[in-house]
Amino acid sequence: MPPRAAPTARQLRLGLELRKLRERAGLNTKEAAALIGANQARISNIETGRFGLSERSVRALTRNYDCVDEDLVNALVAMTGRQRRGWWEDYRETLSAAQLDLAELEHHAVRLRLATVLHIPGLLQTADHARAVFAEGVPALPPPEAEDRVTYRIKRQRILYGDDPTPCWAIIHEAALRMRFGGSKTSRAQLQHLIDMSERDHITILVIPFRNGTFPGSGQSINYFSGPVPQLDTVLLEQSHGSLLLDAAAQLEKYRMVIDKMEATALAADESRDFIREIAQEL
Rank of each mutant, 00 (worst) to 15 (best):
P3F: 12
Q11H: 10
Q11F: 09
G15N: 05
G26E: 04
G26T: 02
L27W: 08
L27A: 09
E31P: 12
A32C: 06
L35V: 08
N45F: 14
F51D: 10
R59W: 03
L61P: 01
C67L: 08
V68H: 14
D69E: 07
L72D: 00
L76M: 10
T80H: 07
T80I: 11
T80G: 09
E89R: 04
D90Q: 15
Q99G: 07
A115C: 12
A115P: 05
V117N: 06
L118P: 00
P121F: 00
L123Q: 03
T126D: 08
H129N: 12
H129T: 09
A130E: 04
R131C: 10
R131F: 09
F134A: 09
E136W: 02
P139W: 01
P139L: 00
P143E: 02
E145D: 14
T151C: 12
D164C: 09
T166Q: 02
A170C: 07
A170N: 11
A175F: 02
L177G: 00
R178C: 00
G182M: 03
G182Q: 06
G183I: 03
L191V: 10
D196C: 02
D196H: 06
M197V: 10
S198L: 08
E199S: 13
D201A: 15
I203E: 04
I208V: 12
P209R: 00
R211Y: 07
T214Y: 05
T214N: 08
S218N: 03
I222H: 00
P228R: 14
P228D: 14
L237M: 09
S243W: 01
Q251T: 11
E253K: 13
R256I: 05
V258A: 06
D260A: 14
A266D: 06
A266C: 14
D270I: 11
E271C: 06
S272W: 01
D274C: 10
I276A: 03
I279E: 04
I279R: 06
Q281L: 08
